[in-house]
Each structure stands twice: as C-alpha cells, then as structure tokens.
Write a protein that binds this DNA or RNA. Structure first.
Lengths: 211, 211
DNA sequence: TGGAATACATTCAGTTTCGTATGTATAATT
DNA sequence: AATTATACATACGAAACTGAATGTATTCCA
C-alpha cells in the first residue's frame, strides 16, 4: 500500500484538514485520533506515520496558516505608504478581510482561542501565540514613532502608549468578533468603522479640527 | 457518615476550590473527577452528590466569582461621579486591581480563557462569556452618551463608536495581561498608564490642548 | 529486477474515565 | 425513639483512547 510522494503529501494534507474540522467541532482534547482518521478516510496508522502525536498534528495545523499570514505581516513591515497610520489601518482591515474570506484561517483561530487547553504539551504553544503579538507590538511602536516623526500623529500622544493601545484594541476586536461569529453568523459591519475610528482618533488633523 | 448542613456546604466549597486548582493546572478536559476528589480530600461519590457532572462543577466555579464582580458592575452602573469618563477609568482600574489581588478571580479567568474547550455541553458556557461583554458594551454606550451630553467627551467623537473601541480595548488588555502573567509573573505597570491614556484620548480637554 | 525502505492498515494490551448502583453511618424529623 | 432522608464512600461494568507492535503491498533505488 505504498503511495507515491505526491500521494503521500496529499494524505498528510487531508489528515491536517480533517484534524482542523474535528478540532473545531469537538475540541482538541475530545478529538480522538481515531475520529480524525475516520474524517480523513484513513486509519490511525496513517496519522501516527505522519505525526508523533496529537500535539504535533496541532502544530502542523497551526503552521499551515502562516502562508496566509505572512503577506499581511509583510504589508505591515514595509514602509511604502506616506502615512504610517494608513499602514496600520490597512493591516487591520486586511486581517479582518482574511478572516472573513478564508474559512481555514478563521477555523484555526477559533480552535486556538476556544477549543484548546494550553496545558502540558500544549503549554508551549501558548508562546507561539504570545510571540506574534509581541512582534506586532514592536512593529506598532516603530510605525507610531514614524508617524510622530512625519507629523501624522497628534502631537500630545506618546507613540509607545499608542502601540499598547492598538495592540489591545486589535486583540479585543478579533476576540469579540470571533465570539459574535460563533454565536450568530452576522457580518458585523461596524467592525470596519470601529477600526477606522480607532486610527482616526490618533490622527493629527481630525475631521473637524481644522487648525 | 452524614454531615451537618454547615459541614456539607464546607465540602461543597472545598470541591469547587479543588476543581479550580485542578482545572488551572491540568485543563478542564484532562482533569478527571477522580483527581478533583483527591485534591479535595473526598471521593468521586461526594462530587456526584453535589454536582451532576463536570460541566455543572465548572458552572459552579464560574458563578463563584460573581460575588467579586458584582460590586465592580455596580460601580459602573451608578452615576455618582460628575465626569462619566472617570467612571470608566475607575472601573477598568478596579478590574485590574481585583485581578491582581484576588488569585481566585485570576485563576478562574485563566481557566475560562486558556484551559477550557467550548464544545458540546460547554458551548452554552460561551454565552455566559458573551453576555457580560454585551452588558458592558450597553453600559459603555450609556456612559459615553452621558459624557457627550455633559461635554466631557471630545465633540467630534461618536459615543457608540467609542463604546465599541473601549470594549475591544478592555477585552484586549485583559487577554494580553493574563498571557503575560502566564508566561512570566511580572507586574506589568504600564497597563494602568495604558488605561489612563485610553480614556484621556477621549477627553475634551487633552493635557496640552488648553483651548 | 530484486531488495530495501516506505506508507500505511490491522491488531493488541493496557490505562483511564465515566456513570451508576449499592452500602452505610449519621443527622434530621416526627 | 424509631424512622427517614442525607451525605457521602465503595464497588462495578462498560466504553474510549493511546502507543506500540506487527503485517503488507508497493515504490523507489541500485
């Protein structure tokens, strides 16, 4: 029953895909590898061949979304717009877009937030959640400092404090938005307005403050 | 082996207490009722007497913190300060204080955020997480509208949008703060400054904007 | 083209956990 | 004081899950 390399990679992907659906439906703990195997159309033997255990399978599932996330990060890091605050706004909107249009990404985030218990072998995964947030914070500090330099940030505001504020805001909207999606699949249109007003609040020239 | 009513209530509390420590250490799914019983110094029989199953025990654990949360909510709802923005700031600071000083509260929040999978019988618990946030949002709308009425809010700002912003901010700081606490038990002093600046950003008379 | 490595499927032993059923000493009730 | 309801402890049956061990049909490589 040996497969060609392409077929092998195919089953690997199918296992990960099945695991994502299973984790999302039953939670990570309650999902047995037998269940994943059934949903992938294989047996546990196949899973144990590709992955050491459930934690490794979870990690593979998490790594999968990096392909989607990297271009977003690249857009944040590059300094290609004159107004750095636009960069932040575009990044946040892009993130929401990605979450709306990419069910794979959304499911993975929901699993990480509401369907996984970060203890024992999963405790280390928590670091993988902290790190991108920390990176995001670092990048925000740079961008806000740049915005201050170029005179786009309101003069009284401290770039570092604004970075913390935006990090918290971002964490919060994603959490609350995903909760809202979970309880009822509404489109939540005000989230984009919320992002816009969050950034606008920091701009030097607010709409009616024509100095 | 029948106990008096006071003793009965005592063991009930001890079971809940043990469950909290167990859930926090091992995660909800991986915590067997046998383990909880051991940590409480009883047998599973005692647990099944007081609670139908693990989900009910979890609910009891969640209800326990309401006693701590209610006074905070009361402080938010009451209109006893002239500046409504102060009410918001005080509430947020009070919440952080409570989390810092009350390990029971903190542990319970950590369990709800990182050590529970919201599926099947726990899916309904998610609603219990959504509801207080929704209530908080409603209250924020009222308070910001009041602040606008009394002239404390910067005129260009929409009270409703600000309510969403503050809800997201609050969700975010708590999440990020608890993550930071989990990875390393630092005091995170900038969180209070962050709260202050968040509210200050919405005030009509910012520090250097002496009109 | 034949042997070795591969990509699984199948089987097995062992542990863990749950819910319930039953036993029992004692407090509460009358 | 006898009875009943209570507050557990103990024992039992059944199911689920894991990791490893083994079997096997191919594919790859020399």
């Amino acid at each position: 029953m040996r497969k060609t390399k392409a077929e092998t990679e195919q089953t690997r992907v199918e296992i990960i895909d099945a695991a994502r659906r299973a984790f999302h439906k039953f939670g990570v703990s309650r999902t047995s590898l037998e269940k994943v195997a059934q949903m992938a159309g294989v047996t546990r033997g196949a899973i144990y061949w590709h992955f050491d255990n459930k934690a490794m399978l979870f990690n593979a599932l998490r790594d999968q979304i990096q392909t989607t996330l990297n271009p977003l990060d690249a857009g944040l890091t590059s300094d290609d717009t004159p107004d750095p605050l636009d960069t932040i706004e575009k990044f946040l909107l892009g993130f929401i877009d990605a979450m709306e249009n990419n069910p794979l990404l959304r499911q993975t985030f929901e699993i990480m937030m509401w369907r996984c218990e970060y203890v024992n072998e999963f405790a280390s995964v928590l670091y993988e959640i902290v790190r991108p947030r920390h990176d995001f914070l670092s990048e925000l500090k740079i961008i806000y400092a740049r915005a201050a330099d170029r005179g786009f940030l309101r003069p009284t505001l401290d770039p570092e404090a604004m970075a913390y504020d935006t990090l918290s805001f971002t964490t919060g909207i994603i959490h609350n938005w995903l909760i809202a999606l979970g309880s009822a699949h509404e489109h939540c249109p005000q989230i984009r307005a919320s992002i816009h007003s969050h950034v606008a609040l920091r701009r030097r020239d607010a709409i009616s403050e024509t100095d």
